[in-house]
């Protein structure tokens, strides 16, 4: 039934898929937290951040990838590298998504926690760093789980730019074999095997910590 060689060939696409997903998640994380905090602390910055969030929420990430690759690529040489271009586009979108996840999580932390931190003489930044964000992070875990799944799935857009990730491998296999469906079905199973456990794990981890600390 399943030719082990076909499966091995498909598996070769998995590292690139995971690399794109986790690197873009990292970029999104590094962008999302400061943006969420900045939106809380400075209303004047808010408009700029909101515009960024709206753009990446409202426009398909594939369009951004193509814009970056064919448009900006002429001016920004590293965007001419398909892998980098895919990571940057997905990372920027993830920043927009993660900033919303963290904003919701920060808002869910009891307002009195900030008051209590300030009453000890902490600056607002210290209060965020030591009191608000650690609690917000726990609340955000399930959302971050969905975000990673989304990135693993959407990393398949990199296929368009020719990145040798999982979907591209499936496509190559389809062309090389006589089966039109099987390579994609196997890829589908591999995607599920990556997305589901991660999302599930972060969800469980989040609920466990929430119970432990009595967070809402």
């Amino acid at each position: 039934m399943i030719d082990p060689n076909d499966l091995l060939f498909l598996l070769q696409g998995v590292p690139a898929t995971l690399a794109i997903s986790f690197l873009s998640f990292g970029i999104g994380f590094a962008l999302g937290i400061p943006i969420a905090v900045a939106r809380q602390m400075s209303p004047s910055l808010s408009y700029l951040m909101e515009a960024y969030e709206k753009a990446f929420r409202g426009i398909p990430v594939l369009v951004f990838m193509l814009l970056f690759y064919f448009g900006l690529g002429g001016f920004v040489p590293f965007l001419k590298d398909p892998f980098t271009c895919a990571v940057v586009a997905l990372g920027l979108r993830s920043g927009a998504f993660q900033s919303q996840i963290f904003r919701g999580a920060i808002n869910s932390v009891d307002k009195q926690q900030m008051m209590a931190a300030l009453s000890l003489g902490m600056t607002k930044t210290e209060a965020f760093r030591y009191v608000i964000l650690p609690q917000a992070f726990i609340v955000a875990l399930p959302g971050l789980g969905s975000e990673i799944s989304l990135l693993i799935k959407d990393s398949s857009y990199a296929f368009i730019l020719g990145v040798l990730e999982l979907t591209k491998h499936a496509d190559i296999l389809r062309k090389a074999s006589r089966s039109f469906v099987f390579p994609y079905l196997m890829a589908a199973v591999l995607y599920i095997l990556m997305t589901f456990p991660i999302a599930n794990y972060l969800d469980k981890w989040g609920s466990r910590l929430k119970t432990k600390y009595g967070l809402r």
Binding site: Q112, Q113, Y213
Partner: peptide, 10 residues
Amino acid sequence: VFQDPSLFRH
């Protein structure tokens, strides 16, 4: 000292 003790929950 607050009415709701507002301990840092984590």
